[in-house]
Design a protein around this nucleic acid. Structure first.
Lengths: 247, 247
DNA sequence: CAGGATGCTGTTGTGTACAACATAATAAAA
DNA sequence: TTTTATTATGTTGTACACAACAGCATCCTG
């Protein structure tokens, strides 16, 4: 569905820009924006840029072969999503999530997960069912060779798969926003937990959801998801005594 | 609580900028951003800029006495909120909401309204109670002299009052975003309806909510709100045959 | 040696000129 | 007259130079 390459793709962008781009350039511009936006968001929530990291506009602009101006548009969107914060004279800092906000976001995400089954649920297509089977396969694979980063990536893809179960676009946008706000905190905590156990639980969740999707019961899938978000939160709370700080 | 002046306030900003601004200028910059953002958002949802309006970056920049660059930052945020859409070579257009998205947003807003009573409800302070009494007074006043714009402003203030009933900040942000996405569509439709009747119904809603708030029952207030959003949507659907289009 | 002022360095914010683009009016050709 | 090419105009997008700012090291002064 979506590409989450973290390297070698902006190189393509540069080639497309300088090379044989004889199609409409405006679309190329919007696609470039989308690519950089998605790329940076992924780097943030995959902890390539841990909370507190200071990003340099100039360095990023140079990396993507563009000027600071269009890059700042991307950073502005990321800032409006609460992932960055620009401070004059200091830098562009990757935000952290304080404990209170983390709790609130998780509570809200639980409710929204359930709403997926209530608002405009869409009967799963064979393609969607296939996607969840593929996710389940990746889950099994991950159990044999646990890895935090692959775990996080599977979690992201699973989330996007769930978003295909509703046609309510505002719900999707909002769920996505909240997901990306806490995904990195979750990932940061996962490292301090029993990785194998978490992977096993997650694999079971995928399997359960896949079963529900297969018989077309989106509501059941959403309830399964909700309960797992809830339980995941409980486990996180039990193992995470300290949290980060951020103004 | 919040100021929604549509004129004579940016003049203050200019004076503060050129005049005796011997405090930290960075705060002044952020406040300026916030002021212009709020101002433009209000103009959009109060239909000063009806859907389809083409805004000129240069004209707006001149109006606020700044360059296009900082203004574009504001426009970028409004675009990320779905209120604007910039098209290269054409202009910055105020978006419209197609019927499907409108339905989806309303459905979602109903659920979120109920969540206000479930997620981190905050016991109303005397100040909050006073606010709702004031809103109720304005509602009565409005009944004697119905006016679409004053109606819209009261609706906005009432919404912000309701947001004080929860401490869940993400829920507030998201509710606000969805509210401002559909408020102008609601206002546009109100004009074609029985204004006096709508005002009367709204005044009753305020009174009911005020009663619930007064006894500290935030959950009841949220359910009242939910039901009124639902009924408002039904009335809108019955009186609005045609809708606007937007890519 | 301690404390504070001062310059140095790197960062984001702003202004401005120009490029890329879309649209409509206009002129030319069939 | 119709159609097509072209020019004119106004718009947003981009690049770059500079201003404003914060943090830090340095140096001067007591």
């Amino acid at each position: 569905m979506r590409e989450y390459e973290t390297d070698n793709d902006y190189e393509m962008a540069r080639a497309a820009k300088s090379g044989g781009g004889d199609e409409t350039q405006v679309n190329a511009s919007r696609e470039r924006f989308q690519r950089i936006y998605t790329l940076l968001r992924n780097r943030i929530c995959l902890l390539d840029y841990p909370p507190g990291t200071r990003l340099s506009e100039e360095a990023l602009a140079a990396e993507f072969g563009i000027s600071r101006t269009p890059l700042r548009r991307v950073l502005g969107w990321l800032e409006s999503q609460g992932l960055l914060r620009s401070v004059h004279g200091v830098g562009t800092i990757v935000t952290d999530v304080e404990i209170d906000a983390f709790v609130q976001v998780y509570q809200l995400r639980m409710e929204l997960a359930e709403l997926v089954g209530k608002l405009s649920p869409v009967p799963p297509t064979p393609e969607t069912i296939g996607l969840f089977r593929e996710l389940e396969r990746r889950g099994s694979e991950l159990q044999q060779k646990p890895d935090p980063r692959a775990f996080a990536q599977l979690n992201i893809d699973f989330f996007h798969g769930l978003m295909r179960l509703t046609e309510n676009e505002p719900l999707r946008e909002i769920s996505e926003r909240l997901y990306y706000q806490t995904a990195r905190i979750w990932l940061k905590s996962i490292s301090q937990m029993n990785l194998a156990q978490e992977v096993a639980i997650f694999a079971r969740e995928i399997a359960e959801v896949r079963t529900a999707v297969e018989i077309g019961d989106v509501s059941a899938a959403s309830h399964i998801r909700r309960s797992h978000i809830s339980m995941s939160f409980v486990r996180l709370s039990n193992t995470k005594p300290e949290t980060a700080t951020q103004a």
